[in-house]
Design a protein around this nucleic acid. Structure first.
Lengths: 220, 220, 220, 220
DNA sequence: AATGAATGAGGGTTCATTCAT
DNA sequence: AATGAATGAACCCTCATTCAT
């Protein structure tokens, strides 16, 4: 039921290496990821960044011309790399899992999202932090996920609903429920930035719970 | 099923008025609540606070001697007022709901928590923000809730489990599941700081989902 | 040789009690004396003063309208009370000591000045401190002493010089030499604000030294 | 009798140039020396310093991280450069003056100390000012001088005492007497920060006075 | 490309002073 | 006479950013 594929978790990390960055500039971005996620954007000084990256203060500004630019550079892959690649992952999975039942589908999606969330804890921490002071960012991120994922997943869910395996809710609501449950499960690890979750075990439990909670109402 | 009681939602607001504060000092705290929750603690300047509170910068420091002190003053009621009062609320409900079934219990708790969460959106935003840069705060808050609530609720859950109405999970896991689902439901409203949720309607949906998801495994 | 009269040492302390001051205002001045002398004028806040005087911050300003006013109030007696009274002391002594030799005169003046300096350590500390940032004050103080004392003392010295008991220096130079030696002796006690000097013993030593140093050159 | 050597007077000034300081940072220290000595440490603002040094306020903090740090940087050479070098000067003089009499020795030491005091008026003013609010500093400075100088000078004095040229007092008392007299002579110039003293002439006078005052008691 | 000295605006905080009570 | 809440200018210091080297 659980799988060991590595779908998107390092899509972000990869993006750090594909750009035309020097070693020092990469070190700067990595330092930003660490510091922004732990101290917060505002509480991180460019001096902090320079020191952690073992770089002069001037170098911090060589590629990106402001502290905000560094933050943007960290968050950009979310829209340009992570989300699109997500959609593609699911599309491929659709074909492969075409005949499996809802529970198997659930297992895949839950495991995939948990792995992603735990692999990108720092980035997620930064996103949460920024969303708090810039709610529009949440709208953007959510709509990207909505556009990219829901569109891909909706037909799949419809099939399970027609097969009587899934409650007759709108696709967005179902996905939101799944997301809430998954997020609620991994949230402590994300906030504490400690990888204390056994993903395979947690997936089984969450799938159990969701399978029941999302079963057609008539069953009861 | 849903109720219109107002248990704890303004426990915090009330705490602003019980202290021996001047009108101006209260205005300062209120301004802090607004600004810290929207711009974040670090991005809020004492000048911002003074202006929003229609007060001089000196007054900002009259009662609390540092910006951190103002933050602490906002978060303190969480431990000294909100959480203890929560426990008492539940204790009272135990008596009243003694004979009701699990679904009714669920309705109460979900409605109560949603109301609390939506009534204290700003405070919650601040807590989330601070937890990101001070994980120990999460541990503290969670353990307080754990101590105060779980202890009160565990015997109740046990009764429902013995009556075959509730899955045989540890109390903490059940509560965490409920909390995750509730939090996932209200999170968009909290992050966006927009009260767009119909609590009664949302309660019904969440209760439906949870009742199924937490039903004993054997049922399926 | 040494005497137990109490000439001027508490002329200043007395001035605190002669003015039409309430108890609280006196407490304020006393607190100023302590704080200005130990922390310095600039490093002493009006809050410090209020607290040490057990008085509200408003009261600090009741009699004297600024912090500078408080300092002035402390230093004023120096010109209006202390120095004039000094002259009178010496005038009286002239009559009494009319027939004594230079050594006895020296003993009187050294003992008198030592007693004064050690009894007004705090005031002297403040004067030194103020002189550093306002050299004109030194000129004022010195000229007051010059006017008041030298004028009184010069004829006396002349008599000792004519009697061959005293070097043939100008009166001011002799007095400055005496003052330097006395000041050098008590300076550690003044700076450290610790009364560790046995005045009678120290007087004997200083008189020995000065009597030789100021003896007519021909002797050697 | 008087000499024109320049032993230690600019030991401090030199120390400003040996450190790895930028021109601007040196200008900052120089401005601090001037302002601290004239207005006092507490009454000098970092803005004052920046303006006098023709530098931005940020630059004031580039090398030393606080205003106190700047003060420490000014006072440090006193312990690490000035005092040790003093000892060495005297040691050298011992050899050269081996056969001279006490009066010549006195002339050297008086001239040397007067030159030093007048060349470092600003520094001395700062030290006096700081001693007033931090008596422990006096203890430190005095003990350094005690250790460095007395130890070097004591055997010399003993020789003069055995030759019957010097009163039979403890070395520390003799040195303190000399110091008091010298300090008393130059003090007006130091406090007023005006170089109105003819060192050679003043030396002769002070030596005359001290030679008599410190002559063996039996002579009289 | 990389450095780090330099900048000056703005940060949090303290302060002397005022004034309604 | 006495209080202490309120003020806002000024304080010390940090910051993101620039630029000559």
């Amino acid at each position: 039921m659980t799988q060991s594929r590595q779908p998107v978790e390092d899509a972000f990390a990869a993006s750090l290496h594909t750009d035309d960055l020097t070693d020092k500039q990469r070190a700067v971005l990595t330092a930003c990821l660490t510091l922004f996620s732990h101290k917060g954007f505002d509480a991180t000084s460019t001096k902090d960044i320079a020191q952690l990256a073992h770089v002069s203060e001037g170098t911090v500004y060589k590629k990106y011309r402001s502290k905000q630019g560094l933050l943007d550079a960290l968050l950009a892959p979310l829209a340009t790399v992570v989300v699109p690649r997500l959609a593609k992952e699911f599309m491929g999975e659709v074909v492969r899992n075409d005949s499996t039942d809802f529970r198997a589908f659930l297992a895949f999606i839950v495991h995939d999202r948990m792995t992603f969330a735990l692999s990108n804890r720092q980035l997620i921490r930064i996103v949460i932090s920024r969303v708090l002071s810039n709610p529009q960012l949440l709208t953007t991120v959510l709509s990207q996920f909505s556009d990219a994922i829901t569109e891909t997943i909706e037909p799949i869910l419809k099939r399970y609903q027609q097969a009587g395996q899934l409650v007759d809710w709108p696709a967005t609501k179902i996905m939101r429920t799944i997301a809430s449950t998954v997020f609620g499960t991994v949230m402590p690890s994300i906030l504490l930035d400690a990888a204390t979750v056994d993903i395979d075990f947690a997936t089984d439990e969450v799938v159990d719970f969701l399978a029941k909670g999302l079963s057609p109402a008539g069953r009861h």
